[in-house]
Design a protein around this nucleic acid. Structure first.
Lengths: 222, 222
DNA sequence: ATTAATATTTAGATAAGGCTAAATGGGTAA
DNA sequence: TTACCCATTTAGCCTTATCTAAATATTAAT
């Protein structure tokens, strides 16, 4: 049976996320940046993960994740996101406080715990950032979504996720009321810099740079 | 600032529990039994804990816990017991399933998390086994309690804790309905072997060996 | 008061996970 | 094609937490 250490789980999760976001081969350097460790330490870890057959590792050519590895990674992601829901919905954590704690909670090893937590939370499909929660088989329900700045004038949608989840960005969104689930409508777009004027929840006007809007993901509703 | 590793926290908690239960000096051998490690490993750990000034360590003479160590231990106990309440009350874990999971959860490092969890649970004073939950300053409200077999015929009380919390013992208690909070009354005591006949919750008669009764703690109500 | 038994510590290994410094592979520019 | 730069790996070391085997201290028994 596959057993991963705390550190191995973190590396695997990082590899999973980096492979999702585009190219197939994740490099040692990318990982060392992501994990804030030195490339030499990464090489070592890749050897171990490769022995446990959760990644395909060819020296000097980066890694890809195996089917088994993907399954394991999705279970960690599932746990992380369920705990985030718990922290926000039950313990009144704010959006930007949850990540570090969930980062620890995701490593607790108990099938029963996660099953019960899932039920306790009402089997949520999305976490507080709008990201989908994999089910116990690793299946994810993903919604077609686009960056806010790609919507046209007069079109409406709902905020479902953010690309940049730095604490600073999340605090900014909180302040302006652009939380997950908020309804938005594009009132105007400025030609020369791409900035937007939007209506939030049918009551608040907001000006937003193209940059900020590009980091907010919505599903279009009209 | 005091920072303990996962293993150090576990050793410190064990030292705390062993010092509570009677004598002052905890021996290397006792600890190695408790922690299921070899005495040599314990010696090593004691050196480290001693450097961090959470215990007083004199070679060959066992250890005592310092004030600082006691404070740290009580915080871990607090977290452990709060999580147990959560698992039983919110996630419907049964009495005998909580311990191992709480053993992991107790190491999550977040003051905010514990504060919020405490509030979410309604600031409980006792855990599902009836043991008191230290407050954030480490103060415990303890109830005067005695083993069931020390009560006399016709006296009544309420079960508040157990001494042996092995899964087997907890399952047995569950089966006979002797859960925490149950009202008990001594109907008869057999002279020659000390066994008891008791009435549980005013409806169920139960025979119990002196041994079992000695592991059940009650507060006397009459 | 010695000796035998037991408890404890020390010494030396191992594995995981990190580091730095040095060696090496691969891609690119001339 | 050769030289060079950057990415990557290897080698060697550190710390934590464990182990086994050997040495030593304490305690108990005669």
């Amino acid at each position: 049976m596959l057993v991963l250490t705390y550190a191995e789980e973190n590396y695997l999760k990082a590899i999973y996320h980096l492979s999702e976001g585009g190219q197939h081969n994740v490099s040692t350097n990318d990982l060392s940046k992501e994990m804030k460790t030195k490339p030499a330490s990464v090489s070592d870890m890749l050897r171990r993960l490769s022995e446990k057959e959760v990644i395909n590792y060819r020296k000097y050519y980066g890694v890809t994740i195996t089917e088994m590895g993907k399954k394991a990674a999705l279970q960690i992601v599932r746990k992380h996101r369920l705990w985030e829901v718990f922290l926000v919905e039950k313990l009144m954590f704010s959006w930007d406080e949850v990540h570090d704690v969930a980062e620890e909670l995701e490593h607790i090893k108990s099938q029963l715990l996660i099953q019960r937590l899932d039920d306790f939370l009402g089997n949520p499909k999305y976490d507080p950032h709008g990201d989908p929660i994999p089910d116990e088989y690793g299946d994810v329900k993903s919604r077609p979504r686009l960056p806010l700045n790609e919507m046209e004038i007069q079109e409406s949608g709902q905020i479902v996720a953010v690309r940049d989840s730095s604490a600073a960005f999340l605090r900014y969104l909180d302040k302006v009321g652009a939380y997950i689930g908020a309804r938005v409508k594009i009132l105007d777009k400025v030609e020369f810099d791409g900035s937007l004027e939007i209506l939030v929840d049918n009551k608040k006007n907001l000006f937003m740079s193209k940059d900020v809007a590009g980091n907010i993901l919505v599903i279009q509703t009209s």
